Simulated assay, not measured.
Amino acid sequence: MPFNLLEALSDVVSLFYNDVQRKGIELRLKNDRSVPVWIAGDPVRLKQVLNNLVNNAIKFTDQGQIEISNRLLDSPDEHLIIEFSVTDTGIGMSSEEMEEIFKPFKQLDNTYERLNSGTGLGLAICRKLIEAMGGKIGIESHPGEGTRFWFTITTQALHSVEPTSEETEHQADAHRGKQILVVDDNAINRKLITTLLTDRQVVVDEAESGEHALTLFRQKRYSLVFMDIRMPGMNGMDITRAMRKIEIEDQRTPIIALTAHAMPQEIEQFLAAGMDESITKPVSELGSRYFCESLFWASKPKQTAKLHATVYACGARRPAYVA
């Protein structure tokens, strides 16, 4: 997918502007002019990785600055190898900590309730995303001297690719005015999904908790709900069960699970709770687009035709079916 790299990097900086202002630190963007503006790839995955790295840097930096930078490492054949870095002046970490930093965060039990969140899960996902884009990720740090996370991607330079006004208007007409609810306790995740949907002329509401989601669900008729599974208090399955009790029988709203879990037995639990399908985080632009186009018209409870969509999760494709 062609995308504007400068716009993607600017989106990351804008997302954290208020956070760095509150802490009194500086967030800088250093762009290598030899890196093309338009490249091929997945801007959502790229921003997901950068968002995780910048978010962690802000947590552990109380003074000084955080810098996002890129540089062109090599250009074999028609490809480009670009390195991205997130460097902070924070507390740093030891060699022992660096050995553990990319290992997945492990829960103490198998429940979906989460009282505390850690950075391990985000960094483990970052590594999967980077590897899916043909790159590597690493870290350089010393206690008290800050940290530098770096990663590479392999891509291609492209000429500017903008949709025509007719194409943009046609896509917007298909979804104009439809209402979508995004339920996730993580503000960054909500922002990413909302950003993916803004160009489709839909109305997106966000809820950070089960109670807030149910309040909105009682007030409005939604065409689609994106539901995080693991949240404090009511989890996504509990919220879905409550929504199914609220809605009118002939006005079933498609509910899509957002989860880092994709095991068959877990997906069966989601479906049993009343969900229609699941998307493995992080959600890509293509994944959200195809789900929207398919599921906007799949809200009849007795529909027998199966709708097909394509979900992109950590670089893999899988067919999705909605009964």
Rank of each mutant, 00 (worst) to 15 (best):
V225P: 04
Q65I: 02
G24C: 12
C292W: 05
Q219C: 08
V20F: 10
I239H: 07
K47H: 13
N70K: 04
V204W: 04
F105N: 07
I153R: 12
A57F: 08
N31P: 06
V161Q: 09
S288L: 02
G287F: 06
A298M: 00
M1N: 15
T195I: 01
T168I: 10
Y112K: 11
T253H: 02
F84R: 05
A272T: 10
P163R: 13
E166N: 13
T155P: 07
T61I: 04
A262T: 10
G236C: 01
A40Y: 14
V161L: 10
K106I: 12
Q219D: 14
V322I: 11
S14Q: 11
L192M: 05
A8E: 15
I101Q: 11
E7L: 11
A172Q: 08
Q65C: 02
G138T: 06
T194W: 06
L6H: 15
A262Y: 12
T259D: 02
K30M: 00
S299C: 06
G146Y: 15
G210D: 03
L108W: 09
F105G: 14
P76V: 02
P264V: 06
T168N: 12
Q107G: 13
P2S: 13
D205H: 11
D185S: 01
L192Y: 00
T155I: 07
R318Q: 08
N186W: 05
G144L: 08
I279Q: 08
T310F: 06
T198E: 04
E249D: 07
T168W: 11
S299W: 01
L108P: 00
E140A: 14
H142V: 09
E285T: 00
N55M: 06
L216F: 07
G118A: 09
I139F: 15
L258G: 02
I91D: 09
D276H: 12
P301I: 07
N18H: 15
S223K: 03
N70Q: 03
M133Q: 13
S10I: 01
K47D: 05
S141L: 10
H142T: 11
P282R: 12
I229F: 04
I193L: 09
L115C: 09
